[in-house]
């Protein structure tokens, strides 16, 4: 693979808008493998760990967080224009996540509760309807997770660096859960969203006897009506199911036909 050293290193950016920054931390916590990777890429912008950050053009730009303010939107649009590949990194970016719950509540009430002084919610601070990135710009790849798994970042970078089309894990949680021979919680009459949620987490929660709460968001072709029937059959209250579906990807579940208002 001598060609890789002659090739120009890709310009990579890791940017953030509204969110808890946990998804970025996943990347920085990779440590050894990240250091190895830094020899292969030009990390030109990563405001969380770098003092000097360059504007685009970027070859690959990871964006965590969701659009919740005018500033978020402006930044996102700028990065989109500056990037060859834009990756939505984390469930805020892909599905709206917890801040997205606001769309199911009274906007004014939420703002009253959060901000004592609302006078500076103007200009670039003007709140917008909390939405995932793809509501505003074209997204090339989506890696959900709250936070996503580090292997998903490494796998994607490997594919980019080898000029391959990145492959994102796209199977339900049940796959890894069953392969690890974990006793099915759903079968046991408990609450678990596993069958309709994208896995890749190695069944993190079911392993410790906690049902999947859906932090990776739903699969595009999930059979939601049947899943709701299964949860109902297990005696899970309708209100609780609604809250669960609203939590990480409410807008997406609505788009897929779930009644969670």
């Amino acid at each position: 693979m001598s060609s890789s050293s002659e090739k120009k290193k890709p310009r990579v950016a890791i940017h953030s808008i509204t969110g808890c920054a946990g998804c970025q931390l996943v990347i920085y916590f990779i440590r050894d493998k990240l250091l190895e990777l830094l020899g292969e890429i030009d990390l030109v912008a990563a405001p969380m760990i770098k003092g000097k950050n360059e504007e685009g053009p970027y070859d690959i730009c990871f964006v965590e967080g969701l659009v919740a303010s005018q500033r978020d939107l402006e930044n996102l649009k700028k990065w989109r224009e500056q990037s060859k590949f834009l990756v939505a990194w984390g469930t805020c970016a892909t599905h709206g996540n917890v801040p997205g719950i606001k769309i199911f509540m009274d906007e004014k009430q939420v703002e009253e509760a959060v901000y004592k002084d609302k006078s500076n919610l103007t200009g670039e601070n003007t709140p917008l309807k909390p939405t995932p990135l793809e509501a505003h710009v074209r997204i090339d790849y989506r890696i959900s997770g709250c936070p996503p798994e580090e292997i998903e970042f490494l796998r994607m970078m490997q594919h980019f660096l080898m000029d391959m089309k990145p492959v994102v894990y796209n199977e339900p949680v049940c796959v890894e859960c069953t392969q690890r021979e974990i006793k099915c919680l759903l079968e046991d009459g408990k609450e678990c969203l596993g069958p309709m949620i994208r896995g890749g987490c190695d069944a993190l929660c079911p392993v410790v006897n906690h049902g999947c709460t859906g932090c990776h968001g739903p699969l595009e072709d999930a059979n939601i009506p049947q899943m709701l029937k299964l949860l109902k059959a297990n005696g899970i209250p309708k209100e609780l199911v609604k809250q669960r579906l609203q939590k990480y990807a409410g807008a997406k579940f609505e788009e897929l036909g779930a009644d969670i208002r």
């Binding site: 693979m1 890789s4 190895e36 490997q158 660096l161 392969q179 069958p195 309709m196 299964l230």
Partner: peptide, 30 residues
């Protein structure tokens, strides 16, 4: 209409063998 595409039927089948192959490679050294 009842299928949730969870794949448990194929994973637990004593004869289901379909597989995928992929490479895990260090992009620098190959």
């Amino acid at each position: 209409d009842l299928c949730v595409s969870c794949q448990r039927c194929t994973i637990l089948c004593p004869t289901c063998f379909c597989f995928d192959m992929y490479d895990r490679v260090n992009p620098k050294t190959g």
